[in-house]
Structures are given as C-alpha cells and as structure tokens.
Design a protein around this nucleic acid. Structure first.
Lengths: 317, 317
DNA sequence: TAACTTTGCGTAATCAATTACGCAATTACA
DNA sequence: TGTAATTGCGTAATTGATTACGCAAAGTTA
C-alpha cells in the first residue's frame, strides 16, 4: 500500500485495519480447507477453553481481550453446535461456567494440530520479512499498556501548544491588541460603553500606573489573549481584581485562558495579595467554568459594580 | 496479551484485530481532542483527496485498500458536512468525481498539521519497541501481495498430507485391510455377494497371480486405502481395469483416492496398457467425480458385468 | 443487617467494514 | 454496428465488533 507511505504513520490504525481485514477474509476460507465447521471469530474462545478449565464469560473476555457481550454471543453460537456447554457455578450463581464438551475437546485437539499449517504459513511469511510483525504487535501491546496512544497524543499536543503560546508582560506594542481582543468579545454580547473604551484605550493610566499588571498571550509571536491584574481601591475587602480576560475566538482549547489566569494569580501572590476578586457574567459559561476550575468561589451576595456583571467570585491566594 | 503467547502465531489475525480495535477506539477520542468533527474512518478518503486531484469512488477505494461501497458511504457522509463535493465527469458519465471543497482543503491542511502530534506519539511508541510495527506491516503487505496466506496454507497442508500418506505395493500383511476397506464401503450401499468375498479374500489368486497389481495407501504406516489394477480377460477391448478402490471414510479430503488411482494409472502405462477400463455406480458421486477429473470418459452404452455397476468408463493412457 | 457498590452477563442499538446484487455506461470484438 | 463483457457505483444484507443499559447476585460498609 503505497498510500500509507504517503500518509505517514498517523494512519497506522487505518493501515492495520486493512491488513487485519485481509487476514480475516482468508481465515474463513482456511477453516473451510479443513472441513471444520467453526467460525474464525470463535477461535480465541475455543482456544481459551482448551486448558480444560471451566471459565465464566467475563473471564474469557478478559483473557482474550474482547468485550464480554462479544464472548457472550460467540458462546451462544458455539453451544448450538455442541462444542461447548454451560455448567452452573455453585459458588457464584451469577456466573455460568463454560467448558468444552467431549466433542469439543476432540475437535480442538484435531483442529489445533491442523492449524500448525497456519503457523507454518505465518512463519514462512515472517521469513520473507525483515521485520517481525508478531513481536512488533507484542511490543505495541506492552507500550500501549503502559500509556495509551490517546494519553500520549494528549501530552504531546499539550507540550506543543504550551511551547507555541508564550505569556509575556504587557508592552506598549500590545496596546491595540488589548483593545481589540476585549472589544470583540464584549460586542458579542453587549455594547461598548464610554467607560470601557476609556480603560481599554489607556491601560497604562488605568491599570499599570496604579500598580496593576497585564499579561499577553503570544501565539507564534502574535498576541491572541490578554488578562489584567488590577489593584482594588483603598478600603476594599480585596487586594486585587482579575479583569479584562479576553482570548481570540479562533484559537480555542489550547488552555490560553487558563495560562493567562495562572499568570495573574501568580503575580497577585507575588505582590502579597491574599484574596483575588473578579466580576463576570453567567452568560460567559466557559469563562465561569474556568474560574471555578481555578478555585474561585461564587460570592453569596452580588453587589453590582459593572453594568455587565451578574456574578462575583473570589479566590484565596 | 499473554493469551496470544499461548495460542502461537496461528492466531495472528485475532491478535491483530484486538490491537486494531484498541487503536480505533482511541482514534475517535483523538479527533475529539482537536475539536474536529470528522470520523476516523473518513481519514483515508480525506487524505487521499489532499493531492487536490478529483477522483472517482472506485479510484479512491483502490488507493486506500477498501471496498467501494465503504468509500461510497463515507463520501456520502462527508458531502453532508461540506468537506467534499461531487463533480460530473464529462468523459465518463458513470463516474462522479470527488474533490475537496475550499472548506475541506483548509480543514485538511489544519488537521494534517495537527495530526503530526499523532505521528509523534506513534514514533514515541516505536522508540519504546524493539520491533518496527510500521515496517513489519509493510513487509506483510508485500508478502501477502506475492502469495496470500490462504494459498500458503493450502500448499503447506498439501505437502504435509502428501508426506503423511505413502502409496506402496500390496504385501501379504495388507490382506486383511484389503478385505475390510472394501467390505465397509460395499456394505454402506449393498450387500456382500459370494463372488465379492472370494475375490477380496484371495487377491493373490484373483488379481496378483493374473498379472495385476494392488496399491495400498499408508497413513502413518497404517493402511487406509487400496486400489487394484486387474488385467482384463483375453479378447477384451481393454488391457486393464481399475477396480476395488476403497478409502477409509474417516480420512477424507487428503487426496488419497487420487493418489491410489494415479499409482494404478502409472502402473498400467508402465505395463504397456493403452486403454484403462472401470465399472462403477453413479451413486458413488465422489468416486465418479474423481474418475472424471482423472480423464475417464463415460462409455455411451452400458454392458453390465457386475451386479452393482451402472456406469462404465475408460481412459486412454 | 440494611443500603450502597461492584460484578456477571444478557439484550439492544450502533458502527465500520464486508459481500451480493443490480442498473447504467463504457469498452471490446466479431 | 450490434452484442457481450467489463466497469462504476449505489443499495441491501450480513458480519464481527463495540457501547449502553438493566437486572440479579455478591460484596462492602456503616
């Protein structure tokens, strides 16, 4: 299959499927060759029982690596052909133990002796190959047992995205980005108000010069998210407020919001803050979910401060 | 899977299936990870179209190694999501050419870039393995392309069976076997007649001493089949007759009858015979089929000689 | 010992692939 | 040029597997 040389290894699953399908197709004919009336899919169950120990359906399923409903169906089919039979488990009445019948035993011996031919065919193929498929499968089973491919991809993806996104402190060159990123999401739900515009256009005056900080998320050097840490006015119960969190809509799911908040929280701790406050709106579901995940607790009573607010939260630092 | 270490390589198909299933299960979650709404099974079709060449359903199927109905279904699903579209083939109105839409093109680039993570995960796994699964699959594809596993098993089986069965000339120690093997099949359909018993009990007198030969098939040293070459009486149109073919019922499908007949035919040639005659009964379907396969032609008219006969055949040597 | 959790396993629904089949268009060929 | 064979491809049925779910039995725990 030249095709898979083009796709690269990301398609190993598809490639395996094609090979498996090819082998399975032949398997049916091979059983036919021996005039044995058993289906290829019975083989693992059949073989598992050749050690002559009665086993429950789930035990077989675990042993052969298939789901129990699959084994359940196979068992039903095999009972019909009198290869196996059910015995009640005296100790545990949930189980029905499965054993080979006498006929099953004799057929299994015969069949397995005949299937040495298949083994030889496999070895013949192996001898024509530079790489050992059988051993490679075993290696993969072990490797996947340690850590699934899903977990591996997750980790690699996170690492990559982490290195793609850099959180930096605000610099004048990000002034426009700070304005635009905030404008965009506000306008999605509400309208910009004069007060918004004043703060967003002059973060230096309203945030930085008051002792606040702004963090900018750079994606390949390009600003895609911002978040501010603002000191609360004198006399407030809180030291700092987390505000102006905005992330570019087209770059979601990369944990950018999370990392911006982390930066703000760390800076707040660094500055000796003890409780971090924020005000938001419950319509912003992903943001609220993020705040909760970070440990923010909703205040029992809401004391409006912003026009857009309907929820206030706090986090003990 | 310790289980497959027990079964041996005859179960390589089942083992592959389990591994494939594991990978496929994760594949769906991996696509979810990237927030892309495409199914894993679409991937080969999708990838095949990234070279931006319009392709017919069957062309794609051939390329990716799947059946055309499978591709047909996938194409239908993908059209619904506007990833691909159909274009009429001006040259051949049977075909509908498939291409990526603009949206499909942009998504494919993005997706394939993201799936580099999967590639890296595969490479990570490979680095933990002593054996290269990817290369091993490629080797197997090539080996199976040269000769399918079914063909290989067939050959190996035939070789083994050939060496298990030995055709030898009659010796006095096979006297009882000659009688019993013939008695068994005759009694399945008819009753033994005095004439039968006389010939079968004294093959020396009635066959060998008249210049005939008897061949015995030994299965692991044990006689399981016989066949006789009898000279025809003076004045007959034929030189020899093939007769008394009998094979143990429990050892079928190993070509024993065939090999006994071959031995008889060769001996007839060796003795300078030109036409070989036989008489049988159409109820013995497998035997008649064998005779035909060997080149025997039915005589247009039947001149009864045996009580059990209803067909006569001849073979030019 | 009562209530909750876990385990065994059967049934139903679903999924991804296949074969079988049939129709329509094209190609081969006599 | 007409007929037969081949090719493209869609639909239906089948296969071998899965997940979801639910019931009953067993185990756990307060």
């Amino acid at each position: 299959m030249d095709f898979f040389e083009r796709t690269g290894k990301m398609a190993i699953g598809s490639r395996l499927r094609v090979l498996t399908e090819t082998l399975t197709r032949d398997a049916a004919s091979i059983y036919g060759l021996y005039g044995v009336d058993i289906k290829p899919k019975w083989f693992p169950v059949f073989y598992s029982l050749t050690d002559e120990q009665p086993k429950s359906v789930t035990a077989i399923a675990r042993e052969i690596g298939q789901s129990h409903p699959s084994v359940s169906t196979i068992v039903k089919e095999m009972i019909k052909t009198r290869l196996i039979e059910e015995v009640d488990d005296k100790a545990d009445r949930r189980c029905t133990l499965i054993t080979l019948t006498e006929y099953g035993k004799s057929l299994s011996q015969e069949l397995i002796a005949q299937l040495r031919d298949v083994e030889r065919a496999v070895e013949q193929i192996s001898s024509e190959c530079d790489n050992d498929l059988w051993a490679a499968i075993a290696d993969w089973e072990k490797a996947l047992g340690r850590k699934s491919i899903l977990e591996r991809v997750k980790e690699i993806k996170e690492q990559r995205e982490h290195s793609e996104v850099e959180i930096v402190e605000y610099q004048p060159q990000y002034k426009k980005a700070f304005y635009e990123l905030n404008r965009k999401w506000i306008e999605l739900y509400w309208e910009l108000e004069p007060h918004d515009i004043e703060v967003m256009e002059n973060p230096d005056i309203h945030i930085l010069e008051k002792g606040g900080h702004i963090f900018v998320a750079l994606y390949n050097g390009f600003p895609v998210g911002v978040c501010a840490l603002c000191p609360m006015p004198e006399g407030s119960a809180y030291d700092f407020e987390l505000a102006k969190l905005a992330v570019n809509n087209s770059i979601q799911r990369k944990g950018i919001g999370r990392r911006l908040c982390d930066a703000v929280i760390n800076k707040a701790r660094e500055l000796g803050g003890r409780i971090l406050f924020l005000e938001s709106n419950t319509r912003l579901k992903p943001a609220i979910a993020l705040y909760r995940k970070l440990g923010f607790k909703e205040l029992p009573e809401y004391h409006p401060a912003y026009a857009r607010g309907d929820i206030q939260m706090e986090l003990s630092l």
